[in-house]
Design a protein around this nucleic acid. Sequence first.
DNA 1: TATTGTTATACTCTATAACTATA
DNA 2: TATAGTTATAGAGTATAACAATA
Lengths: 161, 161
Amino acid sequence: MFANIVRMSSVDVGGQDAAAVPADLFDDVSFLLARANAFSLAMGNAALAEHGLRVRSYSVLALAAGGRRPSQRELAELLRLDPSQVVALVDDLQKRGLVARQPDPGDRRANVVVVTDEGRVVYARAASAAANAQAEMLADLTAAERDQLAVLLRRLASPSS
Amino acid sequence: MFANIVRMSSVDVGGQDAAAVPADLFDDVSFLLARANAFSLAMGNAALAEHGLRVRSYSVLALAAGGRRPSQRELAELLRLDPSQVVALVDDLQKRGLVARQPDPGDRRANVVVVTDEGRVVYARAASAAANAQAEMLADLTAAERDQLAVLLRRLASPSS
DNA sequence: TATTGTTATACTCTATAACTATA
DNA sequence: TATAGTTATAGAGTATAACAATA
């Protein structure tokens, strides 16, 4: 299980906190993360293309289709995007009739982003395609390993929590 | 350990291979990967900035500084970049005297990218900074969990192998 | 013919700053 | 004064196509 031990060398050049330096780029979690993500993104975008979506717009649609009724600000926080990027994503989905902006009655500054009936249909199809792509990407992992990966990534991906 | 079970719903809309669809975006490995990578990239770039590097150029420098003596083509494959992107990265590092292009005696089409003495110094400092940033990112994980994450990512990140 | 490196181009993503309307 | 949404812009990353030199 742990045959592939991460090698570290203690280079410790000239100071500071001095964490262990990976002996090889391929022992570097950040590098592996970037590589895995590039792969995942390419597969995801390819799978979503036939539904007119990309990973970014799909994520917005998925959150709108969930039970959260997110504001744009919340979308930005959940997706770790700048609010200005969310504007463009919601604009695009709204033009295509997949989501709508609803004024928040409790705060007239805020828009709640909700999915339309058509958006729900497109989302369901796209989610299926995305799940197939992901299954292919995860094909070499057991179910337990996939879950473990999700757990570990969630703990990385939540620096504030 | 596995308290956080990934929930799946069997939506299966209208056909195809029908993989399970994550019930929530935050159960989606691709999404978690993208989010973790965005975080990692931001931290990495911030840590490398004072050394005049970004994650991409650091990766090229790291491979040049390793024992591989990679050609640009090999760099492209290792980093999963297009060869045309490698040109710009090597150009930049070469202008700054950190790497050099050496004609491959065995294949006059190919350039071997090698680190210079100055490049080696910059790399060592940058690697230390990058390792510190990564340690901060991984602070919530045990050593075993970090290793496990690296192992799982390596298995994802190698679609061809 | 195929491959290595290169140039060019278009598009997407990321990061900031500034503005408006509301709170 | 602070926050939600918006606009604008610049820089970085991604994806293709085409070309010259060499295999």
